[in-house]
Each structure stands twice: as structure tokens, then as C-alpha cells.
């Protein structure tokens, strides 16, 4: 007996996508055929789980493998900066190539190609962002922050902060506190 099935790839595909995304508890929005917007940041493990699940249906995320790696680099860097233990005594280049299993040269080139910036610069940006966060949310002095973030001196942190943002850490602190007091007055 033969069954003649008429099916709509779009619907199937859509259904599978929906099921798998929901299984993994990912917020999403289907824009058009072949295009899904993820509404939140997805950790790389989840991302890969989704990729695997879809692959078994013959659905492939038309993606740049490069960007996954870049995302991994970024995650590693963020982990390195914000988790102080991992920074101790390890050069970032060594740390990254060991963790991701690629040569630092390859990672570096790839990163610059995709993100318009270098790994070094990205590390600095992350460190500065962390410094900003510490300045605003803790009572730590800049000297203490410099020590915490493994800078050789407070002057080095100041310099890096100023080079990255064009303003000094204290000016940054002052501006944000002024903004906050203005916002408080408005409320």
C-alpha cells in the first residue's frame, strides 16, 4: 500500500525547531523561513546541544563555525577576568590556546576578523569593565582593584583605564555618581 504524503518542509522544520528550542528552554522568535532570532544569550553548551539535536533531523544551523569559536574565546576571557583564581600566573595567550585547543596565532587572527578588535584589546576592555563595576559597587580603592586584577601598579591600571576610555578612573566615578544623584532628584 502506498501512501501519498503531501508535506510542507516549512511546517515540519518549524515544528521541529519549536520543539527543540522549547526542550532546551531557549527563548526565540521565528522571523521568516530559515531565520530564527534567539531572544537571549545562549551559552555555548546549550548552543551545541541545539546544534546536535537539529543535526539529527538533517537540519543544520547555517552558521559560521568561526563565530562559535569566537564566542568560546570571549567566554574564556570573561571567565579569566572575572574569576580571579584563573588569572594568577598564567599568560592569557597560554591560557586560551590550552583551553580551546588551538594555537594562539589562529585564535588571535580569527578573533580580529570577526569582532573588529584584538584578543588583547578585548581582555583590556573586559578588565576595564570589571574595574568600573568594582569602582561603582564596592568600596575598594583603585590600588586594591589594581592588586585584585593583577596589575603591577596602580599607575598601570590608571594608564590602561585612561587609554581605553580617555578619562581617569576618578573622573569616571565622579561622572557616574553625578548622573545617579541627578536621576535621584528627578524621581
Amino acid at each position: 500500500m502506498k501512501l501519498f504524503i503531501k508535506f510542507d518542509f516549512n511546517t515540519i522544520c518549524k515544528k521541529v525547531l519549536e520543539t527543540k528550542l522549547e526542550e532546551l528552554d531557549i527563548k526565540y522568535r521565528i522571523l521568516a523561513f530559515g531565520e530564527v532570532e534567539l531572544l537571549e544569550k545562549v551559552p555555548s553548551e546549550k548552543y551545541e546541544a541545539l546544534n546536535d539535536a537539529l543535526n539529527s533531523y538533517g537540519i543544520e544551523i547555517v552558521e559560521n563555525q568561526k563565530s562559535i569559536l569566537v564566542q568560546k574565546i570571549k567566554d574564556a576571557i570573561i571567565d579569566m577576568v572575572f574569576n580571579e583564581d584563573s588569572t594568577v600566573n598564567v599568560k592569557s595567550s597560554v591560557y586560551l590556546s590550552e583551553k580551546l585547543g588551538h594555537s594562539y596565532g589562529y585564535l588571535s587572527n580569527l578573533f580580529s576578523e570577526v569582532t573588529y578588535t584584538s584578543i588583547e584589546n578585548f581582555i583590556i576592555i573586559q578588565k576595564i569593565e570589571y574595574t568600573k563595576q568594582l569602582l561603582l559597587t564596592t568600596d575598594l580603592s583603585l590600588t586594591e582593584i589594581a592588586f585584585k586584577l593583577n596589575y603591577s601598579s596602580v599607575a598601570h591600571l590608571s594608564t590602561q583605564f585612561k587609554n581605553a576610555t580617555g578619562i581617569t578612573p576618578s573622573a569616571f566615578q565622579r561622572i557616574i555618581s553625578k548622573r545617579r544623584s541627578i536621576a535621584q532628584q528627578k524621581n
Binding site: 583603585l142 599607575a155 594608564t159 581617569t168
Partner: peptide, 12 residues
């Protein structure tokens, strides 16, 4: 402190 931060690069 601010002034020192301004010239931090030269200090180094």
C-alpha cells in the same frame, strides 16, 4: 589622585 591618574603614563 586624579592629577596623578592623568599623568600615570608618564609616571610609568
Amino acid at each position: 589622585e586624579q592629577a596623578k591618574q592623568d599623568v600615570a603614563e608618564t609616571i610609568i
